[in-house]
């Protein structure tokens, strides 16, 4: 399962909307081994295409070194599909080179709603996983008093069948 803060999801969706109809891409870094996405890094799509994305190799080197210096790793690698569903294409699978990362896809084909799905891609095998969006704005120590209230602290998106 991918557990990710709502503010980061909002920033990813905003990036995808901003670059629509071109594909947007980026990384969310987190402490090594934590499996916790913490630092959103929007990347340039060097391909500037509606059907393809590619990190700029020099920007990637800079960002990967920075992560290394901070003892971080790419916890999430995201990109948008702007006219099709949020499911990895053959190209996505062929390129997937970070076996430890969650591959997050956002589809912006509908103007008012986003489809957000997450996948593991290891050795060419795609496995969908649920996405849990966490509201960090809710004080975890205060959760109990909200437990039967109207403001859920988390929203779970189950995998759709396929």
């Amino acid at each position: 399962m991918l557990s990710i803060d709502r503010s980061i999801i909002d920033a990813i969706v905003a990036h995808a909307r901003r670059d629509h109809p071109d594909e947007a891409c980026g990384v969310v870094a987190g402490p090594v081994g934590s499996d916790t996405p913490a630092r959103h890094i929007p990347m340039d799509n060097a391909a500037r295409s509606m059907t393809f994305y590619e990190f700029d190799s020099m920007e990637q080197l800079r960002v990967w070194r920075e992560m290394d210096d901070r003892d971080e790793e790419p916890v999430v690698i995201y990109h948008s599909h702007t006219a099709t569903e949020a499911y990895p294409s053959r190209t996505d699978v062929a390129f997937a080179g970070e076996p430890g990362a969650h591959y997050l896809l956002v589809s912006t084909r509908e103007p008012d709603t986003e489809e957000i799905r997450s996948f593991r891609i290891v050795d060419g095998v795609v496995t969908e996983e649920p996405v849990e969006i966490v509201d960090a704005a809710v004080d975890p120590n205060a959760v109990q008093s909200y437990m039967f209230g109207q403001s859920p602290a988390t929203v779970d998106y189950e995998c759709s069948d396929r």
Partner: peptide
């Protein structure tokens, strides 16, 4: 690892 991908492949993809 090069990070790339996208919705469909053109022929090259």
């Amino acid at each position: 690892p090069a990070v790339a991908g996208g919705a469909f492949g053109f022929a090259a993809a």
